[in-house]
Design a binder for these strands. Sequence first.
RNA 1: GUGGGCGUAGCUCAGUUGGUUAGAGUCCCAGAUUGUGAUUCUGGUUGUCGUGGGUUCGAGUCCCAUCGUCCACCCCA
Length: 423
Amino acid sequence: MSQQIQAVRGMKDILPQETPLWQRVEQTLRDTFSAYGYSEIRLPLAEKTELFQRSIGEVTDIVEKEMYTFEDLNHERLSLRPEGTAGCVRAGIEHGLLHNQIQRLWYMGAMFRHERPQKGRYRQFHQAGIEAFGMEGPDIDGELIAMTARIWKSLGVTSLVLQINSLGTLAARQIYRGHLVEYFNGHREALDEDSQRRLTTNPLRILDSKNPDMRELILAAPQLSEHLDAESLAHFERLKTLLDSAGVLYTVNPRLVRGLDYYSKTVFEWVTDQLGAQGTVCAGGRYDGLIEQLGGKAAPAIGFAIGLERLLSLIESQAGLPAPQPPHLYLLVAGEHAERAGVKLVESLRDALPGLRLVMNCGGGSFKSQFKRADKSGARVALLLGDEELAKNIVGVKFLREERAQQEISMDNLAASLRELIL
RNA sequence: GUGGGCGUAGCUCAGUUGGUUAGAGUCCCAGAUUGUGAUUCUGGUUGUCGUGGGUUCGAGUCCCAUCGUCCACCCCA
């Protein structure tokens, strides 16, 4: 065993038992995105490292220590994408999709972060995301949030709650950040080790500390909401009105801070208490400055990403795995003649009955062992083809899941009979 | 990067204060039933006890190291 090559730490295989749920969730997402008028964009898994440094932020953990970065053979620094927004904006600028235009895009796929794996967190994980460009009002913010709410509804997910906040414009946040640093610097001795480090990296994060010893200090700290610019305040108020109209429940969490540098104004998270420490299933926000920062013509933008492993895990804990789709039919063949006739038969059945799930026994075996495989396959009906059936030009039909007499059906109208029987 | 729990058959797990040849269930194969599954009965296959070292007459069991895994911190979807 020790000699066996194992999967890379934190990179999971998605096994046949789990893929039906993945397919269902992916289909629901595609359908919902499409219903709101969003188009799919497919992006490379790797980008130039600089793209992530310039968008996500130089001093974030993601860029500092979590990226899979390597040097290409021509000495270019590349990174596997740790999130989807940067690549999407890069592609949008590169192909002129964002120049004076409204654009509604979605993507889905694998992301990579070199973190220590734990529940709901993996080194290769999957996100489905939306990016909406060219719309500055809160109406598009509301649309995105309503769309996420609809996705939970379609999937039967009930244990998610919505938290929203406004970070204000970048300028307003810089000013607030100054006040906050000044305040915490005045109480440096009361800060724990993590928060002393955050003071220089991301002081807003201190507000979200889980350390109960710092609770009072945090409660007395300057509030972001008191330092918001008038424009952001109005934007936030209108968003709340829109959410009320759409019937989406929310709580305002003034300590909700997104980790990535590019966010401004609206931020939101859908969280659950059912997944241990990694409770954020979906998170997003507005990033009005990013396009210009990456060299495009300035344009407003907002997006979100859903962590698929977390969403799947939530659905699984609530509803379990969906039933797999077993074959309708399993064909048993005994003898060389029957094998040849069987191949001909299954191909004609596939022609006549599109959508038919039919497994033909391969690998020989006695009727007994073939029946065992038929049963294990989950098929509702076993078809028998042996020398006796060939001689009479019929196929034996045995029901594996119900009390029902075995039948003999003529080869000539087998397709028509099976259509009635099982489809 | 830091801390804690756990590594025994393909899977789920038991294994006594250290004591002979490491077990159960399940799965798989064969037979009971010469062309009939699932149920029942009988028989059979399956192991570097994660890996390396140490203590001991003797280690799955104790010690050290290491790797893997899970959970938590940090951070994030």
